[in-house]
Write a protein that binds this DNA or RNA. Structure first.
Length: 317
DNA sequence: CGCTTTTGACCCGCGC
DNA sequence: GCGCGGGTCAAAAGCG
């Protein structure tokens, strides 16, 4: 699947998220990877504070078979070419990857205020305009140079089966671009966190081979709490998995053999198995709250979080 | 009116 | 050097 190959994403490696601690772990399959980002929990990447999930044993309540990874985490690598990470679409089990210390890199101020200096005669105006243009371009160039020097932000991606492109994750995003993706009828959308101090970006695109799958890529780490955190800070109420998409969506279970190629991965394991999806979604749903009444207490009806089709399926059993 | 989305233009890196 | 694709900018339009 080409689109997934695309999300191998330049210089990235893939690793698992361990639901038991919701952090990145040295899973046996990838133990040869030097994952320095292990200190960076998956939830943390999304800006969810540890105390919201560290004490939760909700994940342990899940049957083993359901305790699989709901996502693929893709980390930005430094000094590592794609060929060394996933040569010929293979993830080498012996590859050692050095990950960058890229957490909370201060963002470059994203403003280039152009001072409008005086309005003279026509010639002067043209000159001013040209000067401004040059200035703007120089500023742009300078800005880009700075941003290039800036260390790469950690990235991770996950695939979600969803009817809607944009999946709610508790943060507010502003769309700043859209690009057509080569060999895909679906465009890629670029979002930026609306928080002024936050430099997190998000890319959303549909999988070419399976339009029902939405690939979301996060870049960077939120420097502020999610509006959802407030709600989740209550005792006995576990965080809503930010990976859990909006109602009507399924987070894909990602299980793959380290020696599998991306192509194999996407053609076999990523082939949507409705049963698996269903199980995955139910499993995710169980993580929401240990006490069902809390959901109601929060004004969240579990049914609201479950696609009606799934519920129907569930109830008909 | 303020915020968000749209969209064409631009820049950059990379491969040839 | 050139073309291509990815990523970003920013003016204009849209929206509540």
């Amino acid at each position: 699947m080409e689109s997934y190959k695309d999300i191998k994403m330049e210089d990235h490696s893939m690793y698992f998220i361990d639901n038991n601690n919701f952090g990145v772990t040295n899973h046996s399959l990838i133990s040869d990877y030097n994952i320095n980002t292990s200190s960076l929990g998956f939830m943390e990447l999304l800006g969810f504070h540890q105390d919201f999930y560290s004490s939760a044993s909700v994940f342990n309540e899940l049957p083993k078979e359901e305790n699989y990874c709901p996502a693929v985490c893709v980390s930005e690598e430094e000094e590592v070419k794609p060929s060394s990470v996933a040569a010929e679409n293979q993830i080498s089990s012996t590859t050692t990857v050095a990950t960058g210390n890229v957490l909370n890199t201060p963002s470059t101020p994203n403003c280039s205020s152009i001072s409008s200096e005086g309005h003279g005669d026509a010639d002067g105006e043209v000159e001013n305009h040209e000067q401004q243009n040059t200035k703007t371009k120089q500023q742009l160039k300078a800005k880009k140079t700075v941003s290039q020097k800036k260390q790469k932000e950690p990235r991770f991606a996950f695939m979600t089966k969803s009817e809607v492109d944009f999946l709610e994750d508790g943060y507010r995003w502003r769309k700043y671009g859209q690009k057509a993706v080569k060999n895909s009828p679906f465009p890629r959308n670029y979002y930026r966190c609306t928080n002024a101090t936050c430099n997190v970006k998000k890319r959303v695109e549909r999988c070419f081979s399976d339009p029902s799958i939405v690939v979301t890529t996060y870049e960077g780490k939120h420097t502020h709490p999610s509006p959802m955190n407030t709600m989740m800070s209550r005792p006995n109420c576990y965080p809503i998995n930010p990976l859990l998409p909006s109602p009507g969506a399924f987070t894909l279970p990602m299980q793959f053999n380290i020696n599998q190629s991306f192509n194999d991965l996407t053609s076999s394991n990523l082939a949507i198995n409705n049963q698996l999806d269903h199980a995955a979604f139910v499993a995710q749903g169980r993580r929401f709250c240990s006490n069902s009444e809390m959901l109601g207490d929060q004004g969240i009806d579990f049914q609201d979080l479950m696609p009606s089709a799934v519920l129907k399926h569930e109830y008909n059993r």
